[in-house]
C-alpha cells in the first residue's frame, strides 16, 4: 500500500439507526488491507465516537478518512451548531446530550476523552453558528 486511499461518508443528524455505518465500513476496509488489529480498533473507536457525536449534536456533516502507509487521518466536519467551550467539552463526564440520548446508551461525556485516548493526534476547531471540524490521526508506524 504505497498510495493514499480516501474514503468519504455523509452523516445525517439524528439518524441514530445508521450511526456507526461509516466507522464500521472503515474498520472492514482497514482489516482487508491487513492493518495491525490494534491500530484498526483504535481507529474504529475514535471514529465511532466522533460519528456518534455528529449524529447527536450536529446538523449533519461529512467524514473523510485518508489512509496512507504511515498514518490514518480522520476528518469529521459538521455544519453546526458549534461547541461553545471546547475545553469544557473535553472534560470526562461533561455532556450536553439530552436524556433521550442517554437512554440509547450514549451521552456520558466520554466521547471526546475516548477519542483523545485512542488517537495519536486530536484537533478540534469550532465556531458557534458555523460548525466543528475534528481531525484525528492514528500513526501506523
Amino acid at each position: 500500500m504505497n498510495e493514499k486511499i480516501i474514503l468519504n461518508y455523509n452523516v445525517d443528524s439524528d439518524d441514530f439507526t445508521r450511526a456507526g455505518e461509516a466507522s464500521g465500513n472503515v474498520k472492514r476496509n482497514l482489516k482487508l488491507m491487513g492493518v495491525d488489529p490494534d491500530i484498526v480498533r483504535r481507529v474504529a473507536i475514535s471514529l465511532y465516537e466522533g460519528e456518534i457525536n455528529m449524529v447527536i449534536h450536529s446538523n449533519g456533516g461529512a467524514i473523510e478518512v485518508i489512509i496512507s502507509p504511515t498514518e490514518i487521518e480522520m476528518i469529521l466536519k459538521d455544519e453546526g451548531p458549534g461547541i461553545e467551550d471546547t475545553e469544557l467539552a473535553m472534560q470526562a463526564g461533561y455532556s450536553t446530550a439530552p436524556d433521550n440520548i442517554r437512554s440509547l446508551g450514549f451521552g456520558a461525556g466520554m466521547g471526546l476523552p475516548n477519542m483523545k485516548k485512542n488517537s495519536d493526534e486530536l484537533k478540534i476547531e469550532s465556531k458557534v453558528g458555523v460548525g466543528t471540524t475534528v481531525t484525528m490521526k492514528v500513526f501506523i508506524s
Binding site: 450511526a19 456507526g20 466507522s23 464500521g24 474498520k27 474504529a44 473507536i45 465511532y48 440509547l104 446508551g105
Partner: peptide, 8 residues
C-alpha cells in the same frame, strides 16, 4: 448501537 459498539 449495541451491535455496532461490539463490532468496534
Amino acid at each position: 448501537q449495541v451491535i455496532r459498539t461490539a463490532e468496534m
